[in-house]
């Protein structure tokens, strides 16, 4: 980011001096590890030892085994679902916070922040206790007359998704809330005045104007959900691992660093590609509206 100044700025030595610490930090802590990860993918392992041999073995391995791609595809699907659910749940919550519950919104925001700051591991295991066959949820349902073990979706993808949405929801709530709270109230009144019902005013004015918040929240949640490993392991029971868990296993259990590094690169590139793709669609839509 810092490297992309205005062209004329490059000629000023003063700017160079000012940018140097930041450039050095970025290089040291961001670019260098990335470069090392890329270099790692061209090495090999033999009996759990890293061999410094330049080869494309790892890459040919990855591109010839559909297993990795199935997991990647599964990860992307889960992340997309998670983003969609987060946005759908956050919209009414954020709208209510910004419009209906203004007097209480301070308290509600503090509560959300507290819930958000509580360690994700704790909360995820809490869900296990709650959703277990003999857990609190089933106990209560049985008590009021439902058949035993009503809720049996622990250790499925749905439980994983529940955990992901639960842990990441705060991001979309806050970004969308900020967008909605910043909309000039007279714009909504103008929509009513023009003849819009409440729902129509939301659809025509509030929703389009909260798009920046929806977009920012979606990108955040997407990037974070591509990297989850806790939820699929704890709530999904490790039955259908996602990319982050695969990478962890590759590094730790299989001690295959080149493969782990390559899988990391694949995941990163895919995630960035997906975001760029959607960004393109998003800006095309905006331009389409302008034409």
């Amino acid at each position: 980011m810092i490297g992309e100044g205005e062209p004329k700025g490059w000629r000023q030595p003063e700017l160079w001096a000012k940018a140097l610490p930041s450039v050095a930090l970025q290089t040291l802590f961001f670019l260098a590890p990335l470069l090392m990860t890329v270099l790692l993918t061209f090495q090999e392992t033999r009996s759990f030892m890293l061999q410094w041999a330049w080869s494309l073995k790892t890459w040919s391995d990855i591109f010839s085994r559909p297993h990795y791609w199935t997991i990647l595809w599964h990860t992307l699907w889960m992340s997309a679902l998670c983003v969609a659910l987060c946005v759908l749940i956050s919209l009414p919550v954020a709208y209510a916070l910004a419009t209906r519950l203004q007097s209480m919104s301070g308290h509600v925001k503090v509560l959300i922040t507290f819930a958000f700051l509580t360690d994700a591991t704790l909360k995820t295991f809490g869900w296990v206790l709650f959703l277990d066959q003999k857990g609190a949820a089933n106990f209560l349902l049985e008590r009021i007359g439902f058949p035993p073990a009503m809720i049996g979706f622990l250790y499925t993808d749905w439980a994983t998704l529940l955990g992901m949405v639960y842990n990441l929801l705060a991001f979309t709530i806050f970004t969308i809330y900020l967008s909605i709270a910043n909309i000039d109230r007279s714009l909504i009144l103008a929509a009513y005045d023009a003849g819009a019902s409440k729902w129509r005013a939301f659809w025509e004015v509030t929703l389009p104007l909260s798009r920046p918040g929806i977009w920012t929240g979606s990108v955040l949640v997407f990037l974070l959900s591509v990297g989850v490993f806790l939820e699929p392991k704890v709530l999904g029971g490790g039955k259908s691992p996602m990319s982050a868990e695969l990478i962890r296993q590759t590094f730790e259990t299989r001690v295959n660093w080149p493969l782990g590094a390559a899988l990391t690169i694949v995941l990163m590139v895919t995630a960035v590609f997906v975001i760029l793709l959607f960004n393109r669609v998003y800006s095309l839509r905006r331009h389409g509206a302008a034409a």
Binding site: A190, Y192, S197, L209
Partner: peptide
């Protein structure tokens, strides 16, 4: 009778033009 169903039309102090519309 809500604003949307009254035969009135308002010109706002801050104009309230929709920034996302042409």
């Amino acid at each position: 009778v809500p604003a949307s169903e009254r035969p009135t039309s308002m010109v706002f102090q801050k104009l309230a033009l929709f920034p996302h519309m042409t």
